[in-house]
């Protein structure tokens, strides 16, 4: 039984490759005169390869099965937390955001023991601060 997963991803790469070839590359890659190799040549080749292989994958899919929707929902929640923390770091800096980020991530994973939560929230950010700013003499993000 061939799975739908490869047909879906194959269709995506077929459309993606064609979109690259006809829309994105002509718009976002210049085509200056002269030289041995145009800046567009290699992107065009890869776009065609993606489109052709996407089509082939639709025709001859493997048995690969993607994880269920719950997995992707959970992953999306983590990505939102990480994205939000990057934005927060741009406003108030790593030092204030990192303990909150560590706490949220640990709670989402399911950690409830105060000692381990303390290690993640206090000890690790402090150790990173010491390593980066004091030992390496570099700046923290933000």
């Amino acid at each position: 039984m061939r799975s739908r997963t490869d047909r879906l991803s194959g269709a995506f790469f077929l459309v993606f490759g064609l979109a690259l070839f006809f829309l994105v590359i002509p718009e976002y890659v210049e085509d200056p005169q002269g030289g041995n190799l145009s800046p567009r040549t290699m992107p065009y080749v890869t776009a065609w390869v993606l489109a052709v292989c996407g089509g082939l994958l639709m025709l001859r899919p493997t048995n690969h099965a993607a994880p269920d929707a719950g997995f992707f929902l959970k992953a999306a929640a983590y990505v939102v937390v990480l994205g939000g923390s990057i934005y927060a770091m741009s406003l108030v800096g790593f030092l204030y955001v990192s303990p909150v980020l560590a706490l949220i991530v640990m709670l989402m994973i399911g950690e409830r023991r105060p000692l381990w939560l303390g290690v993640g929230v206090v000890l690790m950010p402090a150790a990173i601060w010491f390593l980066v700013t004091q030992l390496l003499e570099r700046g923290l993000p933000g």
């Binding site: 790593f94 560590a102 640990m106 994973i109 950690e111 993640g120 950010p125 990173i128 923290l140 993000p141």
Partner: peptide, 25 residues
């Protein structure tokens, strides 16, 4: 060792490491 602490620590280290390597957020 609990995975929660390991993953949270690894995430923070990745943030700092990439920020140092690329000079910013």
């Amino acid at each position: 060792a609990p995975e929660a602490v390991i993953f949270a620590s690894a995430l923070l280290l990745c943030f700092v490491g990439v920020s140092m390597a690329t000079n910013g957020l």
